[in-house]
Design a protein around this nucleic acid. Sequence first.
DNA 1: GACACTAAGTTCAGAAAATGAACAAATCAA
DNA 2: TTGATTTGTTCATTTTCTGAACTTAGTGTC
Lengths: 410, 410
Amino acid sequence: MSSHIHQQKTAALNALLTSSQRQLVRVISESGPLSRTEMANLLGLSKAAMSGIARDLIDLGVLHETETVYGQGRPSVRLDLHPECAFFVGISLLEDPAPMILCDLNGKIIARQSMPLSRDPQVIAEAITEGLPSLLEAHPEATEKLSGIGVALSGFVDETQSNCVQSTLLNWQDVPLAKIVRERSGVETFIENDAKAVAVSEKLFGSAREIQSFSVVSLGDGIGCAHFIDGKLYRGNHGGAGEIAHCTIEPGGSPCRCGKRGCLDTVSSMKAIKEMSRAEGLECVSLSDIENEASTGNAAAIRILHRAGSGLGLAIANLIQINDPGLILITHVEGSFDGLFGTVVNQAIETNVLPRYAGQTPIRIKRVDGDVWARGAASIAAHNFLIGPNTTEVSHAHRCRRHPYRMQHL
Amino acid sequence: MSSHIHQQKTAALNALLTSSQRQLVRVISESGPLSRTEMANLLGLSKAAMSGIARDLIDLGVLHETETVYGQGRPSVRLDLHPECAFFVGISLLEDPAPMILCDLNGKIIARQSMPLSRDPQVIAEAITEGLPSLLEAHPEATEKLSGIGVALSGFVDETQSNCVQSTLLNWQDVPLAKIVRERSGVETFIENDAKAVAVSEKLFGSAREIQSFSVVSLGDGIGCAHFIDGKLYRGNHGGAGEIAHCTIEPGGSPCRCGKRGCLDTVSSMKAIKEMSRAEGLECVSLSDIENEASTGNAAAIRILHRAGSGLGLAIANLIQINDPGLILITHVEGSFDGLFGTVVNQAIETNVLPRYAGQTPIRIKRVDGDVWARGAASIAAHNFLIGPNTTEVSHAHRCRRHPYRMQHL
DNA sequence: GACACTAAGTTCAGAAAATGAACAAATCAA
DNA sequence: TTGATTTGTTCATTTTCTGAACTTAGTGTC
């Protein structure tokens, strides 16, 4: 009973645990640290049953005790996932060279390197496999407990998080990347759309752990968005939930590369802002350049930032009206949100949201570094390790009902 | 084991069943009829366990066998909820007089009457209680198995489906209507926003039973909308999910009663269409009046329908982009969708959705009669009877863990 | 600081529920 | 008719959960 999970070949937690143990892992990963009593109530089990389940998971190295919460009576001890229970590799195919990171179950980055980007899935699989030894080199524990690889890319991914249905950037159509990488590297692999990966990492590793429903809007060259609803990533019926970049914001506006006109992407993405600046004869390498121009009173710069900010604000306001999320998390790589752009975005949200709700939906701005996508990718691997393949409700349980860990270990 | 549920005082199914039985009821109500083997896989149980659970639920009168599906091997028999397992009363507070219906678990309306509308919750509770005997009069079975009352209203309802947080129409603020009706009538009562109630009835009774993620847009005097996501009603963080009527569609447009400008409600609701018509000197009692004018070439009528249709189409397109639902169900009481208005709506959806997705999201139009709201209300009661109070995941289970039916009946 | 008080978490015998394996039943296909 | 195939049942055995009593670790009070 005290043997460690990773004494046997790496496999999803899923396959090693009993149904109750799995449920518990899911609840903790959705709700954050909980005391045994809270868990028992949440799962509808007796304290007695919970006691045993928690003990087994602690012995397995999956959970550990964290803070003690004092109240009336005996203090309760919160249990959380053990950060070093498993390690994951995440790769972002959004940049060249492609960042490749190693992190633990808390999302803490332990090692970092990069690999050349390619459009050939075989070459990618090769590069990942080649890169693994040096990434893992100084970390024997991580090597032993490596539990998955995640890949983030720009494009559509199917609900199994295995196949890229379509990617304009990579020029892909129905590429079973996860399978290819899995077979080449021998490590369980999952892929996901960039924005969705970021949302999962915010839920699993980040600042949204305790929030059940929220949306992440990620600003980069393009605009990505993804929703968590009732504790789960909502991918949409065709994996297209969150494609806010192609909401029509300026009906009849500029043509977009998607074939429509007036998409948010043509108005508020960094790419659009840079292009509009260039068209106005303004030097604009990053957002701060044009923010600076605007602050010195340049009318064109002000106009551009106003237009971009109102567009994004309107889109976010629509999102709030439609989904009433508990939080909007705006992540941005470039520049800052303290300037005109951020101000206009906030104003536009306020003026386009039902007055009753204005200010009711927290908007959190988060500046992120170049590791977001890779970390997001790793979080996809982590999620699959913890919860198992994306499923509706309980429907996955049958796949691995056999062999709860007791039978294998004792 | 063969005693019937309703031999004892009516209570949520919830409280009488074991955890597995409850899970099964939930899965069936979310996914429609299933064979025992399918259920076993879905719940992660053995066929052996499933066999017993199904037998018990059939004996209890909760499930019954429906079609037989022939394939290779022994045919499978689908089990579904027994329509006469329980009966519900639904009341719509959207019209005066307020419709009041009695229906079974299939949503079949068994009796129908109406009661005077009031803004005083006590008076409403009184009217409902007074109305019950005559509604139930000719239906002894329904009387015996009456399992809940549902009330639909225009406004915001909290997540317990008990309190009306705010209703402009009724001029309410924090009214615990469910409690008041429950105490007066002695019957378990739940309330819900009109659009959300319609969505639940479509999922439970209607054409969306097998669809896990969809949105309902209901066109009436106002415009309502509600989402089902992964098999569950998504109410939003403040119960405001689906408030599409106050999405800004025409930035800087006409002022809306909500305080903003250019809301969808000021452009595409029947109320707005009628007002715009009147402003143009057109007679417009119902949508067909102005559709007729348009078909004879009246420019003003065409302009109005175009504006209204584009607005609604754009809003729905935004909804599709943001949530990628598996179905958009548009319900309308008045007129038809075959005229100019419907055509423009469809066109606007097509032109504002990512071309990749155009035509991928089925749009279903459904003309509904005056019973929609009351039926929707009844479905809220039914849902609470089947699944128990609105909860996230498993978290409700602890409330009624004791006394599985075996102990009470044998 | 001794005392009750409270609530968290543990232990263990007994009860309930799920399993696996063998089997019965209902169809198709040849 | 026979075999293949898959659904659904039965039952002895195993696993899991429960209830009740108990231990533990604090708070608050005098």
